[in-house]
Design a protein around this nucleic acid. Structure first.
Length: 538
RNA sequence: GCGGGUGUAGCUCAGUUGGCAGAGCACAACGUUGCCAACGUUGUUGUCGAGGGUUCGAAUCCCUUCACCCGCUCCA
């Protein structure tokens, strides 16, 4: 399936529009149209129902170490700025970057280091980037290459001082970029903020800067104590949240896949450190199965465990659930959801101050500034948990299944898009576009048609429509040829069409037409609500 | 961020050398028909992505800019 066809159908039928389209659009922002909003809402509702409200906390779920509780939360998009400092996002997402005009490489300003060196009556600052395993060797190699010297003439390099960070250098005109061949190719350091900055208060200045959240998870951590104190939940339990997040993506691309404003469906699952590994496995497998249940075939979905070097060292495991999006190359997959074992990093960071992600100690140590104080102070609040039966007090470990609602929606749109052949009224085969959504997520569950607009057929059809409308989003249409009405519903992904015809008026039966098979069968008009209910809840 | 491509009706696209803005589909109404994009008649739809320039005249040539697609780069 070519992506263009899906994008065109999405616009034509009202699934997705470009944001602010009449003004030319904005890069990385997309709007959901009348059908799209239903589809996405159904996906979010299915997730919430399956993970939260529908969860049976009395029974041990298959694959789970023990029964557990689930609860929800809806926190604000703007939070106290300190939240993002302690979470690590401020440091990770907020950097000064320098670009190399020659190599088109980009470096973090504070991670480029270099050394003054003189040879052949020229003095330059040779550098190595953060990608370098051995800055000293790379700096030397860069210097040799620049001066056109061989290794055996290494003594011609006159070093001036030791390795210093690029941040100490004001004038870049004599700086040789980490992979550059000429001097002065690095741009001035530019602020690079992956978080959206905003201002609190109408007169707010720089000290009133706040951020739109880059993930919903932190709102759960900072409310951990509130949930414990207000609900009687006991570990193990999870807190779920659905909501918008914002990231200034460098390269928004691939339709809605990488958007700057997007919606997440996240769970923070709190458990005892000793059982955290089992819970990690449970959630990883449970979430994978959920996508299969939503209608994504096994062959297009992979569960990819991160290699140890790919994940933070304090994490016992991280796995991505990835889908073979059609815009990716053969054999490549795009992330739908990440499940990570975060240990106690978040809760302890919000207690004590941001932990040092490079700390090898157990438990991890707080990252300190040059004065030996915490780089970012924590809340100072006790976020530990006391087990009332064993009286054990500990900081819970966290398993985080973090899903993208827009990515799930996009995957299900891609998966649903089908072109097949169906006969027209003369029996000639014609290409048919049909969105084969699982009935549970289909924007419209059923359409009701009178075969023709006379003889009391519309009246009977309208009664059926009203009866169904009480429970589902259904659609009534009496205009034009019935074949055209069927095809329109195929493009909307409506799984069932109910038609009132001449026979209906005599024996009170109607036909149900199946979207995928085109099969039709008759049922009693009085049974239609139960019949549709049965068909949708398969 | 870099390189290439594209942008004309709701969708798909044509538009010659700079000379009246087009087609198919879709959509709406009416009629006929009566189960898979039907037929007939009638009708609606355009800042030609935006801004500027050249020109008597620009969808067409030039500059700037925005968006989308592809390839690099990046990707928490």
């Amino acid at each position: 399936m070519e992506m263009d066809k899906l994008v065109s159908l999405c616009k034509r039928r009202g699934f997705l529009f470009q944001s602010s389209e009449i003004y030319g659009g904005v890069n990385g922002f997309w709007d959901y149209g009348p059908l799209g909003v239903e589809l996405k809402r159904n996906i979010k509702d299915a997730w919430w129902r399956d993970m939260v409200t529908g969860h049976d906390d009395l029974t041990k779920a298959e694959g789970a170490p023990e029964p557990y509780e689930m609860t929800g939360l809806d926190c604000t998009i703007i939070m106290h700025p300190q939240v993002w400092k302690c979470s690590g996002h401020y440091d990770l997402f907020h950097d000064y970057m320098v670009d190399c005009r020659q190599t088109n490489k980009r470096y973090r300003h504070d991670q480029v280091s270099g050394r003054w060196v003189e040879a052949k009556d020229k003095r330059i600052f040779a550098t190595a980037g953060s990608d370098s395993d051995s800055p000293e060797e790379d700096i030397t190699r860069q210097a040799l290459k620049f001066f056109g010297l061989r290794n055996k003439h290494i003594e011609q390099l006159q070093w001036d001082g030791g390795i210093t960070p690029l941040t100490d250098i004001k004038d870049f005109s004599q700086v040789l970029g980490p992979h550059a061949k000429e001097l002065g190719t690095l741009t001035e350091p530019r602020e690079f903020n992956l978080m959206f900055k905003t201002t609190l208060g109408a007169l707010g200045g720089e000290e009133d800067a706040a951020f739109l959240r880059p993930e919903t998870a932190q709102g759960i951590f900072v409310n951990f104590k509130n949930v414990l104190d207000s609900t009687r939940v006991k570990i193990p339990f999870g807190i779920a949240q659905v909501g918008k997040s914002f990231r200034n993506e460098i390269t928004p691309r691939n339709f809605t896949f990488r958007s700057r404003e997007f919606e997440q469906m996240e769970i923070e699952f709190f458990c005892h450190p000793d059982s955290s590994q089992k819970w990690y496995k449970y959630w990883r497998d449970r979430r994978f199965q959920w996508y299969l249940d939503m209608g994504i075939p096994e062959g297009k979905l992979i569960l990819r465990e991160h290699k140890p070097e790919e994940r933070a060292h304090y994490s016992i495991g991280t796995a991505d659930i990835e889908y073979a999006f059609p815009f990716l190359a053969e054999g490549e997959y795009g992330e739908l959801e990440g499940i990570s074992h975060r240990g106690d990093f978040d809760l302890r960071s919000h207690m004590l101050g941001k932990l040092d992600p490079n700390s090898e100690a157990t438990p991890m140590e707080v990252e300190l500034n040059e004065h030996g104080k915490p780089k970012y102070r924590g809340s100072g609040k006790d976020l530990t948990y006391r087990d009332e039966i064993t009286n054990e007090k500990y900081t819970p470990h966290v398993i985080e299944p973090s899903a993208g609602a827009d990515r799930a929606t996009l995957a299900l749109l891609c998966e649903a898009y089908t072109e097949d052949e169906a006969p027209d009224d003369k029996g000639k085969m014609k290409t048919r576009i049909v969105m084969k959504f699982h009935p549970r997520i289909a924007p419209i569950k059923a359409a009701v048609f009178p075969l023709v607009k006379r003889d009391g057929m519309p009246e009977m059809a309208k009664d059926i429509y009203r009866a169904l409308k009480k429970q589902w989003n259904v659609f009534y249409d009496e205009k034009g040829a019935v074949g055209r009405r069927y095809r329109r519903q195929d493009e909307a992904g409506t799984p069932f069409c109910i038609t009132v015809d001449g026979q209906s008026l005599e024996d009170q039966t109607v036909t149900i037409r199946h979207r995928d098979t085109l099969e039709q069968w008759r049922v009693k008009a009085d049974d239609i609500v139960g019949e549709i209910s049965k068909l949708i809840n398969v």
